[in-house]
Write a protein that binds this DNA or RNA. Structure first.
Ligand code: FES
Ligand code: FES
Lengths: 138, 138
DNA sequence: TTCATACTTGACTAAATTAGTCGGGAATTC
DNA sequence: GAATTCCCGACTAATTTAGTCAAGTATGAA
């Protein structure tokens, strides 16, 4: 049950962007340096973040990325989902009614894992980028 | 952020043991069949669970495993930790004061991940094997 | 114009982790 | 003594992760 670098770096970079980029485009090289993250990896991540509408890009000299939405309106849970770091606690297919294995009843532990997932989702739903920047965590 | 099979199978098997084994030893083959889990993998997991004091074993014919502690007294969080499925949300070393990278300050997102970890820990601390068996989840 | 900067994109890869398997052994009961 | 069941370590195949690399496009400044 560990958080990978995809989700972690994406959030770190977006927090950095919200924190240091005051409306002006911020180059990835700058973010990468400040957060000690590999630049080419970040490029990959920001490609997806742009496609999903979290950031907007400006090319060329003095270009960079800006937040496409208000920092108050971006929840951490959204970022993780967009970047491909889902909260997978249950093993069964959510869409189908069938549970862990074959049987169409849920396994004994289903409710437990579903509860854990809901707990995490709720927590990350309740925190915005702005909250992290201004250190309003719990 | 996904739950692996180690933790998942360990909990499934222990729940099965608490649910179907009424004090009497339950063979792993039976548990494995009922829960559709690979037997040899389960053996590996139960070796650790026995060493950590969660179950006791009886060898030979009609042997098997029994819970070494009351189902009410075994918390899910303990199982996950024992089996080697820790809740790793932060990246920094807990023991040392230094944060994500070199700097001895914590990174901007540290509190966020720590909060998430605490949330999960608290949830799993609050649920016992017995709770799962009797479907007392949330 | 020309150059430097910075985003864009897809393909590729090395390392780590996971999810097991396999084989032989030891204890216990019938 | 035969069947059953736990015991244990070593080994491996597959997957995932965490990146790298290379080539291209757009923009602004000198
Ligand atoms: S996790 Fe959903 S049925 Fe087992
Ligand atoms: S996660 Fe602890 S300092 Fe970054």
């Amino acid at each position: 049950m560990k958080l990978g670098t995809r989700g972690r770096y994406a959030v770190m970079a977006l927090v950095d962007l919200a924190y240091y980029g005051q409306g002006k485009p911020l180059a990835l090289t700058e973010i990468a340096q400040r957060q000690s993250l590999p630049l080419s990896y970040l490029e990959q991540l920001f490609l997806k973040l742009r496609q999903k509408g979290f950031v907007a890009s400006t090319r060329g000299h003095l270009g960079g990325y800006t937040l496409a939405r208000e920092a108050e309106a971006i929840r951490i849970s959204e970022i993780l989902e967009a970047i491909g770091e889902p909260l997978e606690t249950t093993r069964c297919d959510k869409s189908s009614a069938t549970g862990c294995l074959r049987t169409n009843a849920k396994c004994l532990t289903h409710a437990l894992w579903a509860g854990l997932g809901a707990q995490m989702q709720q927590y990350l739903d309740g925190i915005s980028l702005a909250d992290v920047c201004e250190r309003r965590i719990i």
